[in-house]
Design a protein around this nucleic acid. Structure first.
Length: 409
RNA sequence: GGGUAGGUUGAGCAGGUGGUGAGCUCCGCUGACUGUAGAUCAGCCGUCUUCGACUGUGGGGGUUCGAUUCCCUCCCUGCCCA
């Protein structure tokens, strides 16, 4: 809450001269009822209230939306991808064209992912060693080399407010402990190299904590990364195929060690509202995910009661809005029947309207989370929504920690 | 009226010139998706008692051990001629 006076004990990342400052406006309460906190991230392109969610615009666009749409849904910071923009249109071209903000027409904060996630997502198209990663381009098969230094160089050319050090994520259930350890330690060495390389004064640099689901490796990675002069700390390697319980344990290991650390904590890749609520409760400040936008394009709309698949026949005659009372342009102007028609007709407007709705849902949900933190009622919100989830999906209870759903907004 | 090409599961097709037609693409139905190789992908899509079985190649009849195929007849559609 930007209008709130900072209570006693408010912390500031406080590194003078740093381009991005994070101020904790409402620290986690000392009674231990929650580790949730709220704050404000100040960047060269404006400030962001936290906790918040960053829509993902991999190719310098949040798919199907333009900057006016983003402004309308309430996005305050978005994510773009170093690897994709390096391949196309090229970071040097973007630099010549005035940098990423001007290039895409977005004046607010931008964070770029380092390309580390592509180490995982591009699977068999890559070879990794201590020096860096060799990728085969998913566009034309050409070979490219990404080192920590190169990733920093590309991000300095792109010019986001926040750059991220190259890392090696590990998918927990596809990796042995030895593989997790190797990737985690490599990520740590790369973190140091990234910091040594980074020079751009108007750009922050975040480092990434790995460690998979191994508590000791997670802890070691947290200690190591937190000891480095990063402007913020990312928590990587989660939001994958782990259960909510496993993710919660890993988060608790990390946040316990960061309890007195004034820097923002960013859980990479998480985007389901209930997942985010749980993570906020455990002390996370920032999130990003393709999930709300992707599922929207595929016909799934999030509403407080759960999720609606607008491709289902039952919506063809439904004159009501997707969500009663929702402020998004879809719900203000159009019926479920209309959106169902647009999806069936493969009309482009379907993707835009559905994406507007799900991102509005996410961002409004996070605004509500911030209000609950300010009011000291976040633990109530957590128990209320988790109770409702179990009640609504009794048969799913054993696996409900995997089924994120969208209830609770 | 004559000629000709056809009639295959909602649509469009493939195949099949005497030896077990449920194969494809749409459409349709359902599900999945978490630092975007994703406006994508997966399953289903004749009936039933669904790990199997049955029915089904315009209708009827004939020949045959056996017919989608050969014969007769009727119906329907496109095109050409009158």
């Amino acid at each position: 809450m930007t209008t709130m006076p900072a209570p006693a004990g408010a912390a500031d990342s406080g590194m003078p001269g740093r381009p991005v400052r994070f101020e904790v406006l409402r620290p986690a309460p000392s009674d231990g009822s929650t580790r949730a906190r709220s704050g404000r991230l100040d960047t060269p392109h404006g400030s962001v209230d936290t906790p918040t969610f960053m829509p993902v615009g991999t190719n310098a666009t949040v798919k199907s939306l333009d900057p006016d749409d983003l402004e309308e849904i309430g996005a305050r910071i978005i994510l773009a991808n170093t690897y994709h923009l390096y391949l196309r249109p090229g970071h040097e071209r973007i630099a010549r064209l005035g940098g990423l903000h001007r290039f895409m027409g977005w004046d607010r904060p931008i964070l770029t992912d380092s390309g580390g996630f592509q180490v995982v997502s591009l699977g068999d198209l890559r070879v990794i060693d201590d020096e860096g990663v060799t990728f085969r381009s998913h566009l034309d098969g050409s070979t490219h080399r990404f080192t920590p230094e190169h990733s920093i160089g590309v991000q300095e050319a792109l010019g986001p407010d926040i750059a991220v050090a190259l890392d090696q994520p590990v998918p927990p259930h596809a990796s042995t402990r030895a593989q997790v350890q190797e990737a985690t330690e490599r990520t740590q060495r790369w973190a140091e190299r990234s910091l040594r390389t980074h020079t751009r004064a108007d750009q922050a640099l975040f480092g990434i904590i790995q460690g998979g689901l191994e508590a000791d490796l997670r802890a070691a990675s947290t200690r190591f990364t937190a000891a480095l002069p990063f402007d913020g700390l990312c928590i990587g390697g989660l939001a994958g195929d782990e259960t909510a319980a496993q993710r919660g344990e890993a988060l608790d290991v990390v946040v316990a060690l960061l309890a007195d650390d004034p820097r923002p904590r960013y859980l990479m890749g998480l985007g389901s509202p209930l997942d985010m609520l749980d993570a906020v409760h455990r002390g996370v400040d920032l999130f990003d995910s393709v999930l709300p936008a992707r599922v929207a394009r595929n016909g799934t709309l999030w509403v407080p009661e759960g999720r609606l698949n607008l491709r289902n026949a039952r919506f063809l005659d439904d004159p009501g809005p997707v969500q009663e009372g929702c402020r998004c342009r879809l719900c203000r102007h159009h019926s479920r029947a209309y959106l169902a028609h647009l999806f069936r007709a493969d009309e482009l407007l379907a993707y835009r309207l559905a994406t507007c709705h799900n991102l509005t849902y996410c961002l409004d949900f996070m605004a509500r989370v911030r209000q609950a933190i300010a009011a000291g009622t976040l633990p109530d919100l957590v128990s209320e929504t988790s109770a409702r989830r179990v009640q609504k999906h009794p048969s799913d209870a054993p696996s409900s920690d995997r089924q994120a759903g969208a209830e609770g907004g």
